[in-house]
Every structure is written in C-alpha cells, then in structure tokens.
Write a protein that binds this DNA or RNA. Structure first.
Length: 957
RNA sequence: GCAGGGGUGGUCGAGCGGUCAAAGGCACUGGGCUCAAAACCCAGCGGGUUAGUCCCUUCGCGGGUUCGAUUCCCGUCCCCUGCACCA
C-alpha cells in the first residue's frame, strides 16, 4: 500500500466509526470554528494551513479528553461569483485560463460554471473532498451552504433581531460602481485601480450673470477667500445641466461632459444642452462668499474627467493655478482671443493661508525653488503635494479674513465647507482619489450614491462599548494584535449591509435588498451548534419564535415545532455554546472578526460571548505571496498527491506559527517528508531491536539503572511537557519543535550512546525505546494522524490513535541532575578530543580528576551570592571554613565568579558514579583508556588542581 | 498621513536582563557507513588563539540605565501590514 492509500484507508475507518460526529455528553466540551471558505476557486496550500490548525487543535483536545466540535460549512453568499460566471459566459480568456489552468477545472466542466450557483457547488464539493483527503476531523452532519433555505431563515431571524434592537438603519453612501454591470464593485472586481479611495469634494457655486453656475470642485474650500478667477479648458466639452434633487435642486450647473458621467450617479441631473467654453471665458462670476466679481480664464491643465472639469483659481496656494496665471499673462495670443488682457494683467495672487517658512505667496516660493516652467510641468504635482501637506498641518487662515481669520486650516476647512453648504453656496460630490478605475468588464467605474442603503450601526457608541467589553474578556492569540482589535472596534463606522446583486438572503422588511456576505456570517457558529437538526426540518417551521426560544429561551405560542424537539435542539445549543475558539486570517481583523464580536455582544448575554480568537498569517510560495489570480499557487490536492496529507500537514504546522507567514519551499517540504519517513523507520527499528513482536499496550516495566536510560526518559518527558504547553496556545511550530525535531535529536543521541547494547536485547533499552515510541506516536497523532494510526495499529496500540490518551508527562522524571550528568559526559569527551587535536602526540591513557568537596562548597556559595562578587564569595567561604588554605580559596573563587554567570548550578552531582557508568562510551569515543581519580595521589603534571565542579581536570599520558 | 507589527549569523527563524558567538531547519565543510551514491549517523560552521583556554568583533544605527543588554529606556533610519462596503 502506498502512503496515499494508507491515508485513504484511515479516513474511511474514521468515517465508518463516526469518530468525529460530536454529540453532547458528560465530558467537558470544546467548540472550535474557523472562517468558512468562500468556494470560488480551488483549495491551495495556503487554505490548507488555515484549516489544518483547527484540526490539529481539535485532535489534540480530543486526546486530552474533551468532547470537541469542529464543524465546516460554505460561505457562498456575495457577488464575486456572479462576475466570474458572467466572464465565463462571455468566454473571457483570462478567466477561462485561470479556471482551467490554475483551478484545474476540467474543460468539459467549464461551461457549467456559467451559472454562479454551479461555481459554488462545484468548488464547495471539491473543498469537502480535499478536506477529507487532508484527514480533517470535521463533523460533516453540520455542513451547510449559506443559501440553504434553513440558513436563510436563520439569517432573517438574526437581522430582524438586530433591526428590532435599533442597530440597523437606512441611509446613503457613495460606492465604487460599474455602470455596465449596474452594481457596486469591490477591489477584486477591478482591472485597474485597486485600493483607490473615494474622496468627498466640495463643489462651490460661482454664479454667472445669467443665473447659471460654474461649479468648481475642490479639496480646499478654505482657499475660497483667495480665489482670483475660474478656469475653463477651451478644449473640453462642457454641458449645462439642471439639478433635480438635493440642496441644489433647481440650479443650472455648467460642468464637463466627462464629469457628468460620474456626478449623474450621485445627483439627479437633467442635461439642458452643450455649452461653448469660449463664450463664457471672459465673462465674470461672483465669488459666493465675498461677492467679488471674478473673471473666467482659459487653462490647459484643467482635467475634464476629474471633479467637475471646472476649477477655481487660487494662485497663492495652488501651484497649478499660479503657473497657469503666469502662462496666461505671457500668452498674448490667448489674451487677445478672449479680450482679457487688461483684467489678466490686474490679476494677482491674494495672500490667504499663512504658514511658517513660506512667504505670503507660498506658491511663488515653491514654483521657483523647483524651477517649474509651466502649468503642464509634471513637477506641479510635487509642488501641490508639498503645499497641501504643510498648509493642512501647519497653516492658518490669513488674519485679514473676517470670521475665519487666524484659525488652523486643519480645523477650519470643514467649518467653512459646512457653512457654505448650509447657506446654499456649495454642495458635495464624490470622486476617485486616483484614476483610472476600471471594472473587469472593461467599463470605467464611477462613484455612485446608494441612497436607500441599509446600515449596521457599528458606529453606535453604546454598542461599541459593549463590544469592547466582550473583547476584553476574550483570549486573543497572538496577544500583540489585541490593540488592533481595540482600534478597529472604535474605528468601525456604520456598515452598508445591503446589496442589490449577488447570492444571499433578502432583507425581510425591504426585499429588493440582499444582505451582503460580511453581514450574514457573524453568527453562524450558533447555527453550527444545531445544524444537524435543521437540515431535515421544514424551513417554514424555523420562524422567529423558534430561534428566539432555542438561542434566547424566549417562550412564544408561535412555535410550530414540537416542544420536546425544541428542547433537544435548545439543549444542544446550550451544550456547545459559548464558542471556545474562533480562527481566521489577519486581513479579517478589521471586519469579519470584529463584526462577529459586535453581533455576539448585541444578541447574547455575557455567558454566551466567544472566549478566544486566533488570527492567522499569510502564505508564501518560495518567498512570493501566494495568489490564485496570479497563478502563484500550489493546489492542496496536488500537494497531497505529491507528498501525502501527513507531510503537508506536518510542514504547514512546523514551518511557522499560525499567525506568522509561512513559506512553502519545496526543499523544506522534502526535508519534512524525510523526517516523517525517518519516524516510520524508527518504529520498525524498535521492533528490530526488541527482536520480537512489539506490543505497545504491553510494555514491560524495567527499573532503570543507567544514567543514560534515565536521561532519555527525562528528555522524553521534557519534550512532552513543552509540546503540550505550546499546543495549548496554538503554537504548532513550537510544539513540533519538541514533539518531533528535538526529540529526534535526543533519540539519535541516545541510540548513539547505547550502540554497543543495540543488538544485545538489553531490557532497559527495549523499555526506553518502546516507551518513547508509545508516547511519540500519540504526540504526533494530531499532526500526522494517518501515519500515527498506521503505526499505532501495527505495533499494538489499543483502539484508534485519534482516540488514544494524550501523553502525560511526569514532572518528577524531568531530572536536572540527569541532564547535568549527560552534559558532563559529553563535555569530557569533547574536551579530551579537543586536547588531542591540539597536542599532536597520541596518548594511551587519559586521567581525569574530580573536583574536591570544598570546590563544590565554593560553587554553592557563589550561587547563593548570585552575582560575580569575588570579595563576597571569598568572605563567606572563609567564614564557613570550607578549606584552610585561604590562598587556594581566593584563586578558585576568582574562577568561580566568572563561571557562575555562565553555568547553571543545580547542586552537587555524583561525578564518580556518572563517569564510571559512561566509561565504556567515553573510552570508545576517545580511543584511549580512561582512569578516573577522586584524589591526586597520582598526578605527575600537577593537573588535578584544575578540577572544578562539572569540569574535571584532564591529564593525558 | 493614521494605526499596528518588525529589523538577529550565508539563508529561514528562535531567544526578549546573566547559562548567548546566540535553539532548530536549510546551505556549506570534514568524518563514519557504502563497491559507490542518496539516505542515515558523528563533528564543525564570525575571527584569532590555547592542554580542554582566553581575547576581539557581532543581534539596523546612535546614546542611556545596569556589576552585566540581543534582551529595558530615549532618539534615529529602514521594512511590512491594514485604512472599509469587499471575500
């Protein structure tokens, strides 16, 4: 049988034994969940890590005696698959290639993915299979998809609950939007413009004499006091529109045709007709705040696509305006064409913002310093950035300006904006911070205002406070990210929770909307707890009254389910809740994980608040970020075929802690594979050494005499202890460091040490190795369950390894003296070898001298003093009279003072016995005869006085 | 910009007041096993020096606290992640 076949065999046995179907019982429960996948593509090794961590923990806890529930389901809600299906339907080559080549969907299956439902079905089925192939200990009876009718009933209840608590309200919101798809778009829907923000821009209304408005858009409403003119670009197509809604209703605005495309998604606008920019240039508009007449001038830097395509000029603080004004004054042809020579000559920057380190006209300083030549010079952007930043943070409104003069820019700009809006002098539009923003369908995106959007009020103060309380009582792993959570909970504002397009559950009180995916996934752990009942029930029975009773114990006569059934379901919920651990990736801290906390805080009492959250890092592939869309992934299924599930699991758990980024490097994976192979070989070697059938359930007890045997048992217990403690807090890497790598090192050392006994069927060796193996199989069972089951059954373990008891360590067997003993032996060997290396002549006999009693006293005293204080050490030693020769004491004390900070003092050890015990080994290692002296009766070269505790003196003859 | 995290040897990555020239892996070097290779085992892996020693340099950079700092404090430079309507 190949290793892959062995794995399949055990998966089948587990399934047949219903090993992971968890029902309430008298044991202590443990409920662990991990963010369920959105199955829009194949599972890769990055996902593998995400789901292996909870599995390892679940298996570990099961072995510790807990009744563990580890469920799984499919988050199929949302819009992305709609877009994917659409692109497959349109035969978009990039998408087809991605799904065929990267996600490995067979060619003949591809056409069926034109239906979004089939995409999520196809991949959730695949996920399920691959999770089985990975050996996950999931209770599949609780599997569901988020569009199952029963789940939708649950979501309806949940959201109505929040609605009734006043935590959902209606409002308006700007979103990135694709006019072609008629749907808001997220970053992953974009061809270009990922991460581009949406900015709010103030539109200031400058009225022409005929009553129409030029409507420049600006980030800097405070510079309105320095406005000298308005710019239009004669090359741009302008139109006149009538505003049909909002605070500017009835206004007639002039803007660029390109701007209209965007703004018409935010305001209801009616096109009146084209406008000839040339006819307006030269006319005057009125500064809405000061009433001053301002001329309209031509400028080429004006971008038709940005804002409104109209710009007001503030040459004192906007470098582009300053340069455009300079350019205009020099351009006789233009001045003549529009008959604006006189007025242009009179137009000068007006000091408006004062900022330390700059003159009254900061643009002049900057443009001259950067040697900007004209308005289309790319350096204009640098100048603008510099001034915007410095004036925003350190600028003040000029003293000459009434009402706002002397105020900080950062503070007053919003005041000025709000004042103008209140007075009907300004309005708001939204635009992208950068362009272009292009949808995957190829259409340019716009900013649209969704005005009957539903919001979850995560900005609500009381709710936030309660959620902070929930967070405070949770265990967060790693603890360092707690401040992140605290920050996010406060920062989160109202969340648009409804969508028009996608898969999902309809808003019960406003069915044209669907709940978006981050909203219908905040409480499903509750659903898991009872899912095994609901799957066979009639959705019609799952009314609000039912859920209120099950989750919140509220009685009602509207419950249609038989009372005893309700009771059973309710009991199960109460058994599993609260959730013990929630696991999810780092990038969900600011939304999903926080939302989960909000929802639980709102709906449940403290007794049902989640108790712990674990946050994951990302996956790298040979040092590069893993990404399906870039094709830079290894599919989990391929990895299993290549290396087996156990190797994949082991590598993922050993290469990094869960919250760190791991790096899938083939070379290291191969190394892991060899390590596991070594472990299997070790098991068979133990049987070989025993010389007869190995039965781990019947290991014969042996009283250990040799130090090295005790040492091995001590190390075993130490590693069990360390691994257990690490695993308790999800440190899978640290746990494996002990449970596999360091233990292996020690076993290597042990077998090396006892190698002359290896084929002598020494009872102690057999006992030690059998005991190691017995514990070791169980220690690794959570990580490499298939291999461990196989070894367990081969070598006589009882029942499933998955159900065996987690190894217990015996603190009393972890023996510092034994450790020190072995160190002593190793150091002697090392020292002798080193001396042999330096002195090139061969020696037949090596004498070693042990430290006399009084030096041990000295060491003890130094340890009591605790710091390298030679005076104090000598003083105390003399007082205790450890030796008559005070000079000797002083000499040794100096040495000890230095040593004491480098050695751990564990008390006196019986060096003579230890060395005698290891004499054969040492002699073989040094290839000489060894003579151990406890006194200096034979000491021709006077070496004995060098002896110190833990460090005998050496004389080579 | 705001917030959070981080800079360790050829490399990945532990350590977070003394036991640290710094765990473990990988790479590399020497040795064993073998006809040979892989695997496996032993040893070395900053520099110099030595009867097992000691010295110098080193944990981004510069200061400080301490008998003692990779570990604590201050400053400084650099890097990564998140900043939303999206799974």
């Amino acid at each position: 049988m190949t290793n892959n076949e062995i794995e399949t065999k055990w998966q089948k046995k587990w399934r047949e034994a219903k090993l992971f179907e968890s029902n309430p019982n008298e044991k202590e429960k443990l409920f662990i969940t991990v963010a369920f996948p959105y199955p829009s593509g194949a599972m890769h090794v990055g996902h593998g890590r995400t789901y292996t961590v909870p599995d390892v923990y679940a298996r570990f806890k099961r072995m510790e005696g807990y009744n563990v529930l580890f469920p799984m389901a499919w988050h199929v809600t949302g819009a992305p698959v709609i877009g994917i299906a659409d692109r497959i339907k349109r035969k978009d080559p990039w998408t087809l290639d991605l799904y065929h080549r990267v996600h490995k969907v067979p060619k003949e299956t591809l056409p069926s993915l034109e239906d979004p439902i089939n995409i999520v079905k196809y991949f959730s089925n695949e996920y399920h299979e691959v999770m089985d192939e990975m050996g996950y200990s999931i209770d599949w009876r609780r599997e569901f998809r988020t569009i199952d009718p029963t789940y939708q009933k649950f979501i309806e209840w949940q959201e109505k609950k929040l609605y009734s608590l006043g935590l959902i309200e209606q409002g308006e919101h700007p979103v990135k939007y694709c006019p072609h798809d008629e749907n808001p778009v997220g970053d992953h829907d974009l061809l270009e413009g990922e991460g581009v923000g949406v900015n709010e821009i103030t539109v200031i209304k400058f009225q022409l004499d005929d009553g129409r408005y030029l409507v420049p858009a600006t980030f800097r409403p405070e510079t309105i006091f320095g406005a000298t003119n308005v710019w239009l670009n004669p090359e741009v197509h302008y139109i006149e529109v009538e505003v049909k809604d909002g605070i500017s209703k009835g206004d007639k605005w002039i803007m660029s045709n390109d701007a209209f495309t965007n703004i018409s998604n935010q305001h209801e606008l009616e096109i009146i007709g084209d406008v000839d920019a040339k006819a307006i240039i030269g006319q005057n508009v009125k500064n809405p705040l000061t009433g001053a007449p301002l001329p309209v001038f031509p400028a080429s830097f004006v971008d038709a696509e940005y804002g409104t395509g109209v710009v007001f000029s503030e040459p004192a603080d906007a470098p582009a305006d300053y340069m455009a004004l300079q350019d205009l004054k020099k351009n006789a042809e233009l001045l003549e064409e529009y008959g604006i020579a006189d007025i242009a000559a009179k137009t000068e920057p007006i000091p408006t913002i004062t900022v330390k380190g700059y003159s009254e006209i900061p643009t002049k300083d900057v443009c001259e310093r950067l040697e900007i030549s004209n308005q289309n010079d790319p350096k204009v952007q640098d100048a603008t950035d510099e001034l915007y930043k410095i004036e925003h943070s350190k600028g003040y409104v000029h003293e000459r300006i009434e009402k706002y003069g002397g105020e900080r820019v950062a503070y007053i700009k919003d005041v000025i904006k709000d004042d103008m809006i209140a007075d009907g002098l300004a309005d708001i539009i939204y635009d992208f911070a950068e362009r272009p923003v292009i949808c995957r369908c190829g259409t340019k995106c716009v900013v649209k205002i969704m005005d009957d959007q539903w919001f979850l009020k995560y900005g609500d103060e009381e709710w936030t406070e309660k959620t902070q309380k929930l967070l405070a009582q949770e265990t967060i792993i790693p603890e360092e990210i707690r401040p992140n959570f605290e920050y996010y909970l406060d920062w989160l504002d109202n969340w648009a929770c409804s969508r028009r397009v996608g898969l999902g559950t309809r808003v019960p009180w406003d069915p044209k909307w669907l709940f978006e995916p981050l909203t219908d996934s905040t409480m499903y752990m509750s659903y898991y707890a009872i899912a095994k009942y609901l799957r066979d029930m009639d959705p019609a029975d799952l009314n609000e009254a039912f859920f209120e009773k099950v989750f919140l114990n509220k009685d009602s006569d509207e419950i249609t389910v038989p009372a005893e059934k309700v009771k059973e379901i309710q009991d199960e919920f109460n058994y599993w809740y609260p959730l013990d651990w929630r696991l999810s990736a780092k990038d969900l801290v600011g939304n999903h994980l926080s939302f989960l906390m909000f929802t639980h805080a709102a709906v449940y009492g403290e007794e049902n608040w989640p108790k712990g959250t674990v946050v994951f890092g990302m996956g790298l592939l040979e040092g590069n970020k893993m990404s399906s869309s870039k094709g830079n992934v290894i599919l989990l299924r391929d990895a299993i075929k290549e290396y087996t599930a156990d190797v994949v699991r082991l590598f993922l758990m050993a290469s990094a802690e869960p919250w760190q980024d791991f790096d899938w490097r083939e070379k290291e994976v191969r190394g892991t594979q060899r390590r596991l192979e070594w472990f299997r070989n070790f098991a068979s070697r133990v049987e070989e050494i025993k010389g007869s059938k190995l039965d781990l359930s019947k290991i014969e007890d042996v009283e250990l005499e040799r130090s090295i045997d005790k040492w091995m048992i001590s190390q075993l217990n130490l590693h069990i202890k360390e691994a257990t403690e690490a695993l308790e807090v999800f440190q899978t890497r640290q746990a494996l460091q002990h449970a596999l790598f360091l233990l292996k090192k020690d076993v290597d050392h042990y077998t090396y040490r006892i190698r002359p006994l290896i084929d002598k069927q020494d009872p102690a060796v057999i006992y030690v190795l059998s005991t190691v193996l017995d514990n070791w199989i169980r220690l690794l069972a959570p990580f490499t369950p298939h291999t461990c089951e196989e070894l367990w059954s081969t070598y006589g373990g009882e029942g499933f390894a998955s159900e065996a008891a987690w190894p217990e360590y015996d603190e009393s067997l972890i023996d510092g003296e034994i450790e020190a003993s072995e160190d002593l032996v190793q150091n002697i060997v090392k020292d002798i070898k080193e001396i042999k290396n330096i002195v090139d002549k061969e020696s037949e006999k090596v004498h070693i001298y042990l430290a006399p009693e009084w030096k041990w006293d000295l060491y003890r005293i130094a340890d009591e003093v605790g710091k390298p204080d030679v005076g104090q050490i000598i003083g105390r030693s003399i007082k205790e009279n450890i030796l008559d020769d005070k000079k000797e004491i002083a000499n040794a004390a100096k040495k000890v003072a230095r040593e004491i900070t480098k050695t751990k003092y564990i008390g006196k050890i019986d060096e003579a016995t230890i060395l005698e015990d290891a004499k054969d080994f040492i002699e073989e290692e040094i290839a000489s005869e060894l003579v151990i002296h406890t006194d200096d009766s034979y000491d021709p070269q006077n070496k004995a006085r060098n002896a110190m505790p833990y460090k005998p003196a050496i004389f080579m003859e």
